[in-house]
Simulated scan of single mutants.
Amino acid sequence: MLIDMSTSQSGAPAEQAPPTRRRHDDAPDTIALFTRLAALEDGPERDILRDELVTAWLPMAHRIAGRFRDRGESIEDLKQVAALGLVKAIDRFEPDRGAFESYAVPTITGEVKRHFRDRMWALRVPRRVQELRNKVRVARRELTQTPGTPEPSVADIAAHTGLTEEEVGAGMEALESFSTLSLDAELSADDDGYSLADTLGASDASFDTVVDREAAKEGLRRLPERERAILYMRFFEDMTQSRIADQLGISQMHVSRLITRSCARVRDDVLGQRGSRRDAGGRSVA
């Protein structure tokens, strides 16, 4: 004879047992320990009890750290970060506010996420841009789940996420900011391959020459005409002092003295101009 277990002996439907919250194997029963911890003042006894709680809940912290494996950080480092989050959760937990696991899981998860946000980026990227990057990354994965699906366009990602195309562009640029290439990284697989360093420009020393010439112009204009002519012949026409002396009908020694004196006057004039600008602006413009 079959018995209907859904009804009581009186024929009324049996009251169903309330669903129980699933507990993980790494969620120990430490309510009594937390109650004792909350009642203790700072001291050796509290430190010992705190260490006992950390040891009891550490497997849970390691489980949470395992969710973030294969994201560019070693699992051991992630476990250390999760353990730090666990310690913070234990220190801040109030036993009369509910179950510790419900409080600790988001606390530890947030600590690990902050680690990725603040420590793992090769370039410092604003948090808003990091969030855009994550949305774009998830959207690209969702839009290419079907094999053979072409790479989604900016417009496709914008329509999928509700972002503007400008925001999608910022998120896609941030995808390249999580890690950097070495300057020795090969950019070509050909026999005549080149590295990233080969594509970088070098400082042009001619810029310093341009600055010096512009700075000396005013001082040169203030020189007497004969001294300007001597400097022009010496430094622009590459004439020797002897040839300049023969052309002007003076001694080579006199030409040498005029060149030295003219250069000193121009140099003093440039330095005087820079000193005036520094005094007026409160800082050096050199």
Rank of each mutant, 00 (worst) to 15 (best):
M1Q: 11
L2S: 14
I3M: 02
S6D: 13
T7V: 15
S10Q: 04
G11Y: 04
G11M: 03
P13I: 03
P13Q: 04
A14V: 13
E15C: 05
E15P: 09
E15A: 10
P18S: 01
P19H: 13
R21G: 07
R22W: 15
R23C: 03
T35K: 05
T35G: 05
A39E: 14
L40G: 07
E41G: 14
E41M: 09
D42F: 13
G43S: 08
P44N: 06
D51P: 02
D51V: 01
D51F: 06
D51K: 11
D51I: 00
E52R: 11
T55E: 13
L58M: 14
L58N: 07
H62S: 00
A65P: 06
A65V: 14
R67S: 12
F68W: 12
F68Y: 15
R69S: 02
G72W: 08
I75A: 06
L78W: 02
K79Q: 15
K79M: 12
L84H: 10
L86H: 07
I90D: 03
E94P: 05
E94D: 14
E94W: 08
G98W: 05
G98E: 02
A99N: 03
F100S: 08
F100T: 12
V105Q: 03
T107M: 11
G110F: 01
G110M: 01
G110Y: 01
E111F: 03
R114C: 08
H115W: 09
R117W: 03
R117D: 08
D118G: 05
R119T: 11
W121K: 02
L123N: 06
L123E: 13
V125T: 12
R128C: 01
L132V: 00
K135H: 12
V138E: 14
R140D: 02
T149M: 11
E151W: 14
S153I: 02
A155N: 14
A155P: 07
I157N: 14
A158F: 08
A158H: 10
H160M: 10
T161F: 00
G162T: 10
V168C: 04
A170Q: 14
A170N: 09
G171K: 08
A174Y: 11
L175T: 13
L181K: 13
S182Q: 11
S188H: 07
A189W: 07
D190H: 13
L196Y: 09
A197V: 06
A197Y: 05
T199G: 06
S203E: 04
D204F: 00
S206T: 00
D208H: 00
V211P: 08
R213P: 00
L220I: 15
R222F: 15
L223S: 01
L223N: 01
R226M: 08
I230S: 05
L231V: 12
M233K: 08
M233I: 01
R234M: 05
M239T: 02
M239G: 00
R243W: 01
I244L: 11
A245G: 04
D246T: 11
D246Q: 10
Q247V: 12
L248I: 09
L248S: 06
G249N: 12
Q252I: 11
Q252V: 11
S256V: 07
R257A: 12
T260F: 14
A264V: 14
D268R: 15
V270N: 06
G272L: 04
G272W: 07
G272C: 02
G272R: 02
R274W: 14
G275L: 10
R278P: 01
A280F: 09
S284L: 07
V285D: 13
V285F: 15
A286R: 04
A286P: 00
